[in-house]
Amino acid sequence: MKRLLLLTLGSVLLISCKNNESDTESPYAQELQKNKIISVDIHKQADKLKQEGYQTFIYSEGDTTFLMQQYFMVFLKSGNSRSQDSTEAAKLQRQHLSHLSRMTEEGYASLLGPFEDDGDIRGIVVYNTRTLKEADSLANLDPMVKAGRLKVEVHPWWTAKGGKLN
């Protein structure tokens, strides 16, 4: 009986030591394991986006892997019809902001804003769409564009998925 008890205790100790080995892995080994998991997640996310019709590729630099996605940078430029009176211009501005809010809420616009200078390019909108044609169509729904106060210029643009401004 004593022998059975010692065998059982020895087995439990051996098993618990093996289970705790991962807790004492070096930080480097833990980072490698984390990167493997992230890499699998990135590939799954890339596959899902491609199935949905988005353009993506995976870029690795050293120990870092990025999921790159194609977005569409829309430059809002001064249009040919900017002679509206102040009341009409203010109404168009409200409708313009409402349109941009809707694009953001529906997940089409990822980044947007006006330029501070008074140049030809008045602002930008980065569209998260499958195609240039879709981004162009959404940008042309803007009441300011429809009124001719703004016009759009669309360019494909690549950036890391989930990137942020610092």
Rank of each mutant, 00 (worst) to 15 (best):
R122L: 03
K18L: 14
E116N: 08
S16G: 04
E31T: 09
S16V: 03
A29R: 12
A46E: 03
K44N: 13
T65M: 06
K18I: 15
N166R: 10
V152R: 03
E116W: 15
S11E: 05
A90L: 08
I124L: 07
Y54M: 00
N140R: 10
Y71S: 08
K50M: 09
D23L: 12
N20S: 12
C17A: 12
V74M: 01
G53H: 11
K44Y: 08
L141Q: 13
A160E: 14
K36E: 14
I38V: 11
A147Q: 02
A109F: 06
H155D: 01
A135M: 01
L9H: 06
S81D: 09
S39T: 11
L67W: 05
K77S: 04
L92P: 13
V12S: 05
Q70E: 10
L14C: 05
M68E: 02
G79W: 03
F115I: 00
M73W: 15
K133G: 06
A135G: 01
D85K: 04
D118A: 05
G62K: 03
S86F: 12
T8A: 11
I58E: 07
Q30H: 11
D85I: 01
E61Q: 13
D136S: 13
G148R: 00
W157Q: 05
E21D: 10
S86T: 11
G163I: 08
E116R: 13
E25N: 11
N128E: 10
E105R: 10
S86I: 12
T104R: 13
S110V: 13
W157I: 03
E106K: 07
L141W: 06
A160P: 06
T65G: 08
R102Q: 12
H99Q: 04
L6C: 06
E25Y: 15
A89W: 11
V125F: 08
E134G: 01
N80R: 03
S98T: 11
T87W: 10
L6H: 08
L32P: 03
V126E: 05
M68P: 07
S39W: 12
L100V: 06
R130T: 04
D23E: 04
K34E: 01
L5W: 15
V40R: 12
D136P: 15
S81V: 10
K34W: 13
L150K: 06
V126D: 02
S83C: 03
Q30N: 09
K50N: 12
H43V: 10
V126R: 00
L92E: 02
L14F: 12
K34H: 15
M103Q: 12
R122T: 07
N128M: 05
H155Y: 14
A109W: 10
E116K: 14
R82D: 01
M144Q: 05
H99D: 07
I58A: 07
D117V: 00
K91A: 14
Y127G: 00
Q51T: 14
Q51N: 10
K50Y: 13
S16R: 05
T8G: 11
S137R: 13
K91T: 09
K133I: 14
F57P: 00
E106P: 01
L49D: 01
V12E: 02
S98Q: 11
R82K: 03
E153C: 04
I38M: 09
K146A: 04
N128K: 08
M1F: 15
L150N: 13
S26A: 05
Q30Y: 14
T104L: 14
T104W: 15
E88D: 14
H155M: 05
E61R: 09
L49V: 01
A147C: 04
V12T: 07
